[in-house]
Design a binder for these strands. Structure first.
Lengths: 182, 182
DNA sequence: ATAGTTATATAACATATGTTATAAATAGGA
DNA sequence: TCCTATTTATAACATATGTTATATAACTAT
């Protein structure tokens, strides 16, 4: 009886993701999504209650994308360094996504602690703890220092405050790691 | 012959500063300024050509405020640590100003290098270089590491991603400093 | 084939913003 | 006192956004 859905939730979320990625989250709107999908604004607000609901869903999606990104392989042997350098590279390569994730009010409330207790990261921490032969508290403090430095670099890159130089970033993170190990 | 100016440029800029400081730069508008000054929108756009011109001027003002803030005295003996801890405290105490300064597009283009060659900072660098008995390049790399870490902490604090714990921040910055000195 | 359900287009309403046109108010010199 | 330059208030225009009302079109069970 009813006509088939032409504009699915997936299409809407994907369009929203691309808009944020290319133009920044400030440019996400019902109309920008509709325009990208070549439809009117109606289907967009038919599948979702409001633009905030869409933003929420894309945030989730972007968060997963980010996690995959930083967990992707790197050529360093130090796994923490790999994580850090990927984190930094994300700030540079995906600056709009970075800003959406960490500089929009959506981020508020997502505490470091909940981040540190993420199951995927917990695994990494355990490996680190074993590999470096340090106790959990030390592993945690090492991770924290590296995270802070990586976040600083990524933030500076995402906001065009410095040029991307992988070697320089690597040196900084290594030096931070060294200091944290003491 | 003409009536006296009731609404001066200073009043406008001060109002704009307060609005950004209290509500965030997204809430700066001709009307929000006018409302705070208890006048219509006309005087605001009479003294300034556009809202962007106002934003520009307040940015300058906020930049100076930030510089004064991080150069204010601290109780640590390591001058770089004082700078870093003040920078971090700014991110926490003045989160909206921090976001305006470093996370709005106004920041784009202000490169690290121009920041590093700021005359006020150059003086500090020289003192550091002498006091730590390291050459300029080393002083620069130490400063860079500390700056990145401080910026990371400040950014996390400004975006409500972690609780402010001065001792924890101090430990992290000290550890970064130690690593950079090697 | 037709009817009823429902996805979509069109268009409107409400609000927020920057900006500008017009008129009224004001202050000091003639 | 009145005139004139200029500041300000009022109000409008233009645009952008979220959201909703109405009508049209599309599909499938009958």
């Amino acid at each position: 009886m009813p006509p088939k859905v032409k504009v699915t939730k997936e299409m809407i979320l994907k369009a929203a993701f691309v808009i944020i990625r290319e133009y920044g989250h400030e440019h996400l709107s019902v109309r920008s999504i509709a325009e990208r999908l070549g439809c009117s604004t109606q289907p967009v607000l038919y599948s979702f209650r409001s633009i905030d609901e869409i933003r929420e869903a894309v945030y989730e999606l972007t968060d997963n994308y980010h996690t995959k990104f930083i967990l992707s392989e790197g050529k360093e042997d130090n796994p923490l360094l790999v994580l850090g350098l990927n984190y930094v590279r994300f700030g540079h390569d995906e600056r709009n996504l970075f800003r959406f994730l960490f500089q929009s009010d959506k981020f508020a409330g997502k505490d470091m602690n909940s981040l540190l207790s993420d199951p995927q990261l917990s695994e990494v921490m355990k490996v680190v703890s074993d590999e470096l032969k340090v106790n959990k508290a030390k592993a945690r403090s090492i991770f924290l220092s590296l995270f802070v430095a990586a976040h600083g670099l990524a933030s500076l890159l995402a906001n065009n405050a410095m040029a991307y130089d992988r070697q320089q970033c690597k040196k900084i993170l290594e030096s931070v790691f060294t200091g944290a190990m003491i």
